[in-house]
Each structure stands twice: as structure tokens, then as C-alpha cells.
């Protein structure tokens, strides 16, 4: 009887330790706690070029993460990228004339959507579209433009 009891306690402790480890991996190691997935509200924005923006990239304003990129689609009529962002419900006072840019974190870092607030007294709601956007800076295009302008200077 005693040994069965000890075994039961040890198996219980083993399973508890296993679940604590799983919980640790979910909460501390991965981003389940920082998710807010599913709740919050969706905003869309159209960009001429999103560079290498990925789904789940951060959406931030003033350097603070407000949400994540939820989906990236393509509009065949306008030939534009349609980026759907999910903003945490706590941040529900973004002006309607908010400006969306695609920035790069660091020199070679990943790309993210940076929002700059406008001055409108009205706020964006679920499903609204951000009208003012600026495309990602593509290094090759910038280098190309630079060379082109230099060449023009030289020929004059």
C-alpha cells in the first residue's frame, strides 16, 4: 500500500513538472502571453511595395508595439499589397488620418509597420482602412536612383 502511494505521488509530481515545463515554454519562451491574438480590432492599409514585410511582424507607434500584421494580400485591380493589422483592443484611439510606414529595424533587421498619429478628432474602428501609407524603402531602388542622379550630374 505504501509503495503504491509513493508511486502515485511521484507520478503526480512528474506530470505536474511536465505541465509546468510546457507552461514555461508557452508563456516565458514563446509569445503566447504577449499575443492578444483574436481580440483587438483589424485595420487594413494599402502599400505600393511592402518590401519583405512578414505576417506577425510588429505594428508599432512611437516604438511601442500596438499589434501585429495579421495577413498580407494582393489587390489585382490596383496592383497593391493589402496589409491587415490586428491592433490590441487597449489602443482604440488612433486618429483616422494615421500614417502607416514600413520601416526596417536596424540596418539588416526585419521590417515592421510604424504608425504616425495624425490630428483628426475621429478614431479608427474595426475594419477601417488607413489611407496614408508609404512604401518600404528598397535598397536596390535607392542605390539605383542615387546612381541615376549622379550620372545626370556628370553629363551636365
Amino acid at each position: 500500500m505504501g509503495t503504491t502511494r509513493t508511486m502515485e505521488i511521484l507520478v503526480g509530481a512528474f506530470m505536474a513538472a511536465g505541465f509546468v515545463a510546457l507552461f514555461f515554454l508557452s508563456m516565458r519562451v514563446s509569445n503566447l502571453s504577449a499575443g492578444g491574438d483574436g481580440n483587438g480590432y483589424a485595420l487594413t492599409a494599402r502599400f505600393d511595395n511592402i518590401g519583405s514585410l512578414k505576417v506577425r511582424a510588429p505594428v508599432s507607434m512611437a516604438g511601442v508595439r500596438l499589434g501585429r500584421v495579421e495577413a498580407i494580400g494582393f489587390d489585382q485591380d490596383a496592383y497593391q499589397a493589402v496589409v491587415t493589422m490586428r491592433i490590441d483592443a487597449a489602443y482604440d484611439r488612433l486618429p483616422t488620418d494615421t500614417f502607416a510606414n514600413i520601416y526596417t529595424a536596424g540596418l539588416l533587421g526585419e521590417q515592421y509597420v510604424g504608425l504616425d498619429p495624425g490630428g483628426s478628432p475621429d478614431y479608427l474602428h474595426d475594419g477601417d482602412q488607413i489611407e496614408h501609407t508609404q512604401s518600404a524603402l528598397v535598397l536596390e531602388q535607392m542605390v539605383g536612383q542615387f546612381l541615376f542622379s549622379k550620372a545626370q550630374e556628370g553629363s551636365q
Binding site: 512528474f14 506530470m15 513538472a17 511536465g18 515545463a21 510546457l22 514555461f24 515554454l25
Partner: peptide, 8 residues
């Protein structure tokens, strides 16, 4: 459970 303990 063992694999989770290993990773953690």
C-alpha cells in the same frame, strides 16, 4: 512531458 522538461 519529458521533452518539455528537457527543453525548459
Amino acid at each position: 512531458l519529458l521533452a518539455a522538461m528537457f527543453s525548459a
